Computed example of a mutant assay.
Amino acid sequence: MSPPADNPCVHCGACCASFRVDFARDELMSEGGTVPDGLAVTVTSHTCRMRGTDHAQPRCAALSGQVGVNARCGIYEWRPGPCREFGMLAPLGRGDAACARARARHGLAPLPG
Score class of each variant (00 low, 15 high):
89 L>R: 05
75 I>H: 13
2 S>F: 02
47 T>V: 15
107 G>N: 11
27 E>D: 00
55 H>V: 05
30 S>T: 08
58 P>D: 08
90 A>C: 10
12 C>H: 02
44 T>S: 15
63 L>G: 09
52 G>W: 04
94 R>I: 05
84 R>L: 11
50 M>E: 01
13 G>D: 09
52 G>N: 01
81 G>D: 07
93 G>N: 07
3 P>S: 10
27 E>S: 04
30 S>C: 11
44 T>I: 09
35 V>S: 07
102 A>Y: 00
36 P>L: 00
64 S>M: 07
77 E>F: 00
91 P>I: 09
75 I>R: 15
64 S>P: 03
84 R>C: 10
100 A>Y: 00
17 A>H: 05
77 E>C: 00
106 H>Q: 12
75 I>W: 01
30 S>F: 06
16 C>G: 10
80 P>V: 01
13 G>W: 02
79 R>K: 15
5 A>D: 13
20 R>E: 10
89 L>Y: 04
6 D>E: 13
3 P>F: 07
60 C>F: 07
105 R>A: 11
41 V>C: 09
13 G>F: 06
110 P>G: 08
74 G>W: 03
41 V>K: 01
5 A>W: 03
97 A>W: 07
8 P>Q: 02
80 P>L: 03
88 M>P: 02
32 G>N: 03
97 A>D: 07
111 L>I: 12
4 P>R: 05
102 A>N: 08
52 G>D: 04
48 C>N: 11
82 P>Y: 11
13 G>P: 12
